[in-house]
Design a protein around this nucleic acid. Structure first.
Lengths: 131, 131
DNA sequence: AATGGTCTGCTGATTTTTCAACACTTTCGG
DNA sequence: CCGAAAGTGTTGAAAAATCAGCAGACCATT
């Protein structure tokens, strides 16, 4: 048993799928979530899973007329950093450089985006110099 | 129903945890996997899950004396690109630049690593110019 | 008011996942 | 050689996940 040892993911398969859709969209109704699924279960199955996600604290809902709009409880930014850390550790030996290489390969950014990415690095280097 | 709509993750919670450990280490015995888990189940529970992962085709084993050493069937590089794409889509609206910003924040690379990352970008820019 | 469509909440049946006990085999150390 | 430790393979029970049917509520239209 090792400190910081991985716990199993907290969400089941369907829960994970649904929460990912909610994060990708920023918010979603049950109907929207269902429409975004390939081979979706019934309406009520989607709704049951959302209710469980809410009980577990991963989403909350706002009333929109008669409908519920579901939102993630953990802000996207925070969840994204956590997911990124997990990715770094699992597949990239915690190396930022290796993720970057993969990123460039996967996304093939255009000239403008490359320039902006370069500027992010330069800005951080400047900040490190000021330290 | 939308083209490229997300499927639920193919692995259950415990399966996911175990496969992530196998990827992080490159290979592992059942005993090693168990040792790396917080609050692990019994030996035989870990082994059962590994056997199911193997039946599902996610890992294979090599015999090492009396012991099995488990390896991922999908190469780490390929799995990492797939995971990165999913991360991009779920949390970053498919923006490489946004992932980079998160990466810099999460990892706080040192001067050497920043320089190497910058060089990756510059190399890609050169390649784009040659196109 | 009646009707149809869309929604929520609940429930129990079914399926999947998780688990550990146990039998057996192999390896290691005294 | 023997016993203990470490390993594999199997199995069935318990727990968790998944599902859809259904009742009722809400909204829009006729």
């Amino acid at each position: 048993m090792v400190p910081n040892a991985p716990e199993p993911p907290p969400l089941s398969r369907r829960e994970r799928q649904i929460l990912d859709i909610v994060y990708a969209r920023a918010n979603a109704t049950a109907g929207e979530i269902k429409a975004l699924m390939s081979n979706p279960p019934s309406d009520s199955a989607v709704r049951s899973s959302l209710r469980i996600l809410e009980e577990k604290g991963h989403v909350k809902h706002k009333q929109d007329g008669a409908r519920y709009v579901y939102l993630p409880t953990v802000p996207r930014k925070r969840a994204s950093r956590s997911a990124l850390r997990h990715l770094l550790h699992t597949f990239f030996d915690d190396s930022a450089e290796d993720v970057m290489a993969a990123l460039l390969e996967v996304r093939s950014p255009d000239e403008d985006e490359l320039a902006r990415m370069r500027e992010l690095i330069d800005r951080m280097r400047r900040e490190e110099k000021d330290r």
